[in-house]
Write a protein that binds this DNA or RNA. Structure first.
Length: 210
DNA sequence: TGCCAGGCCGGGT
DNA sequence: ACCCGGCATGGC
């Protein structure tokens, strides 16, 4: 099982190459993107990010000062914008009340207690919390998403109805505890999902895992 | 034209 | 402990 998981990784890496995740200029941008991309196409998130950058508010201080109303307008292209505006505000409240708005201070906390704290924020669930930990703070935590579950269960590595935590621990039990590896592996699974496992035109015959 | 995208929450059973 | 509706835009 352990070996199979690593062979998958090697096949994907050979086929697709390094994915350079997360596409962002700063850890804070990763955190914002992680919330904006909830059940949302990444292309739409990019538009929202562009709006925030154009207004020069893509940093903790400025975003914290911005009204929820104005924030919602700026992130409109990412969908669920009223909801996500509130969620970003909840996250900022967390960041300022615990770490004075300093990502640096947040990064100093240990991964597991940070995860607990993030999960207590309204609007931050497992995937969002783990994306923040791995892709913004470089903590060795494996991120699970819809693609990950679909791919692993279709290849019979996990059961179809495995929970998030079960899938995550499957990876973390069977892989070297390495943030770089977790980073690349999850990004490769998403790439595979997008390229080969789409419902419309699945291309299972040409799949690099075949 | 409808379906889907790198979820999460709250209420109902 | 599950199950479901709501949240919304833009691309194909």
């Amino acid at each position: 099982m352990r070996r199979k998981l690593f062979i998958f990784y090697e096949k994907l890496y050979r086929y697709f190459g390094p994915q350079k995740w997360w596409p962002a200029e700063s850890p804070f941008e990763v955190m914002v993107g992680a919330i904006l991309t909830q059940n949302t196409n990444w292309g739409n998130v990019e538009k929202a990010i562009r709006n925030l950058k154009a207004k020069k508010v893509l940093n903790a201080q400025k975003l914290n000062q911005l009204s929820g109303k104005k924030l919602a307008l700026l992130i409109r292209p990412s969908g669920f914008y009223n909801l996500k505006s509130k969620r970003l505000k909840e996250f900022l409240k967390f960041l300022f009340s615990n770490y004075g708005g300093k990502i640096r201070k947040m990064a100093a906390a240990d991964a597991l207690s940070l995860r607990q704290a993030l999960l207590a924020v309204k609007g931050i669930g497992r995937e969002t919390a783990d994306s923040i930990l791995l892709y913004a703070l470089n903590k060795p935590i494996f991120v699970v998403d819809a693609y990950t579950k679909r791919i692993l269960s279709r290849h019979k590595l996990i059961s179809e109805d495995a929970t998030y935590d079960e899938v995550q621990s499957f990876f973390m039990r069977n892989l070297k505890n390495d943030a770089k590896l977790f980073n690349e592996y999850h990004a490769l699974l998403v790439k595979l999902g997008k390229e080969f496992c789409l419902k419309r035109r699945p291309r299972c015959e040409e799949c690099p895992l075949k």
